[in-house]
Design a protein around this nucleic acid. Structure first.
Lengths: 149, 149
DNA sequence: AGCCTAATGTTAGACTACCTAACTATGAGC
DNA sequence: GCTCATAGTTAGGTAGTCTAACATTAGGCT
C-alpha cells in the first residue's frame, strides 16, 4: 500500500507539489521583511555567526553564494556595526567574521519577530496538520540536502 | 499525546525549523536555474499563464510583486517571444497576457527538467520519508497561505 | 632556499529583479 | 460631463547576485 510512491508518475506529482512550495517560499521570506529591521539575507548570515566566528568562504558556502557576494554582505554588516573582521591567527590570508554585541541584539530581535510570525501561522493549523508538518521536517531537510548537490 | 504541540514552546521550535526550510528554498530555486533556460521567476510567471491569459495586475497579485515589476517581466517575456499582449475587449485599460506557442514549449522544457530534478532528489528518500513529505503538503500549503496574510 | 600552484579575499563592473513615485488613459458613479 | 478609482507604463533607485582580474599567503616539490 505504500510502495505506489515509488512509481515514477507519483514521484513526478509529488515533485510538482514540492516545487510549488519552494516557489512560494521566496515570496514568504520577502513578506517577512519589516521596515527598519534586518533583511532576510542578513538574518541568515548573522544566524550562521551566532554559533561562532566564520571565514568569508565558509559564509559563502553555507549561504550558497559566491565569495565576492559574501564579502559584500560582510562589508555591509560591518558598516552597520553588527559584525567585526578579525585576522585568523592560523592563516594570514583568511578573515574571521564575528558577531558584535549589537549584532547579537539585532539578530535576537529579528529572530523573535520572524519566529513569532511563523508560530502564529502554525497556530491556525489543526493539531494533526501541525503534526504532519513536524513529522516531515527531517525528510524535507534530507530532500533539500539532496537537491543542493 | 498529540497536544503537546499546542504548547507555545514547541510551536516556537517548529516555527524555527520551518524558517530554516524557507530560507533554504531560496538557494535551492537558484541552484535549479540552468544555462540557456528560463529563470525561476519566468517559469513562475509562465506557469500562471498556462491555464489561460491573465491581466498584468493578476500576475502581480499571484506572484506577490507590484504591478510595475510584473509589467517589466511581461516586457521581457514578450521580447523573448514567449508571451503576447492583447487588449481586453471588456476593458480598454487592461492588457491580457497570453502564452505563445514558443512560450508553452519553453515552459514545458523547463518544467520537465526542474520536476525531474526534484523527483531525483525524492528518489533518494525512503518510502516512509516520501510519505511524510506527501502527507505534509496540504498542511504546508495552508501554513504558507496563513503566512501570506 | 626558492619556486610554483592553490587557496583566501577584495575590487571592479555588470546584470536581474524588485521597489516607489509620477504619469496616461479608461471606467464608473453621481 | 465631472470626479474619483482603476490598469498599466515609465523613470529612477536599490539590493543582491554574478564573473573576471587582482594581491597576498600557504604549502608542496626540487
Amino acid at each position: 500500500m505504500l510502495d505506489y510512491l515509488t512509481m515514477s508518475e507519483d514521484l513526478g506529482e509529488l515533485a510538482g507539489s514540492y516545487r510549488n512550495i519552494l516557489r512560494q517560499a521566496v515570496y514568504l521570506l520577502r513578506s517577512m521583511d519589516a521596515e527598519g529591521e534586518l533583511s532576510t539575507g542578513h538574518v541568515s548570515t548573522l544566524n550562521m555567526l551566532a554559533a561562532g566566528p566564520l571565514r568569508v568562504s565558509a559564509i559563502a558556502r553555507f549561504a550558497g553564494i559566491r565569495v565576492p557576494s559574501a564579502t559584500e554582505q560582510v562589508i555591509k554588516l560591518e558598516a552597520a556595526g553588527l559584525v567585526e573582521r578579525k585576522p585568523d591567527s592560523t592563516d594570514a590570508r583568511a578573515v574571521l567574521v564575528e558577531l558584535t554585541g549589537d549584532g547579537r541584539k539585532a539578530l535576537d530581535v529579528a529572530n523573535t519577530r520572524r519566529t513569532a510570525e511563523v508560530a502564529a501561522a502554525l497556530a491556525t493549523l489543526s493539531t494533526e496538520e501541525r503534526l504532519a508538518v513536524r513529522n516531515a521536517i527531517p525528510a524535507i531537510d534530507k530532500l533539500n540536502a539532496a537537491l543542493r548537490t
